[in-house]
Design a protein around this nucleic acid. Structure first.
Lengths: 120, 120
DNA sequence: GTAGAGTCTGACATCAGTGTCAGGTTCAAG
DNA sequence: CTTGAACCTGACACTGATGTCAGACTCTAC
């Protein structure tokens, strides 16, 4: 598929997809005329990238992480270096703290919403 | 306490504390010389603000939310407008999706880490 | 009263992902 | 062939929280 369709199917802008490629997160074949052509699995890949972005990982770290995934996405499947494992473990811990903080914030919102609803 | 102490006790930079005040998230008395003086409860307030930031809320929405909290923090304790309730409900839903996404990302990291550890 | 640490305001810089525009090329349908 | 939609590259703008700097003022301790 071409970039517009991929954008439509993932909800990610065309601009962002080109950015992902520039950052080495996404690969594409090129047509004779130079237009990007994506395989079907690019859809899942893009969604995963978005999730990792949302989790606060920067593109550089995502670029290191993706080839180490056990996931059969056609990539070269390199192995994680010990340094990367250390970094990813730190990220995982950060995500754990993030989830805990989110739960707190959610409770705050819930409380305000419930209080307001009670007063109506 | 003065701004430096508040910064130290919350782990938030002096710069950020002044920013919070400019955004209407934090209030302070002023000394005769014009220096900010904070009450004890400012500590919890700042920590809460940080959590809400981490949850992806923007300062404007936090400024609307804070006075509607049931929390006895000395604020005027206004009541949430129906429009605000709608917005906060949307934020809460967004946080729920965010937590779910984070769980996915965490699992991805976990998998890579576990795979790497197994190969060592 | 003086030294030095802390604080003040205001301005500009940074980050990283994304939006947007310009000028040109490619693709698919008629 | 032609036309219009989609795509290309490259560049610049934006966002929003935070960093950083300059020059001036305040506070505390000696």
């Amino acid at each position: 598929m071409r970039i517009g369709e991929l954008a439509g199917r993932t909800g990610v802008s065309v601009r962002s997809l080109r950015y992902y490629e520039a950052q080495g997160l996404l690969v594409s074949e090129r047509s004779t005329g130079g237009q990007r052509e994506y395989a079907e699995r690019a859809v899942d890949r893009v969604i995963l990238i978005q999730e990792l972005f949302a989790a606060g990982l920067h593109s550089k770290k995502i670029a290191q992480l993706l080839p180490c995934m056990r996931d059969p996405d056609g990539g070269p499947n390199e192995r994680a270096t010990p340094e990367l494992v250390v970094e990813l473990t730190a990220e995982r811990d950060r995500i754990d703290r993030m989830i805990a903080d989110l739960a707190t914030s959610r409770a705050v919102l819930d409380d305000v919403i419930a209080t307001a609803a009670r007063e109506l």
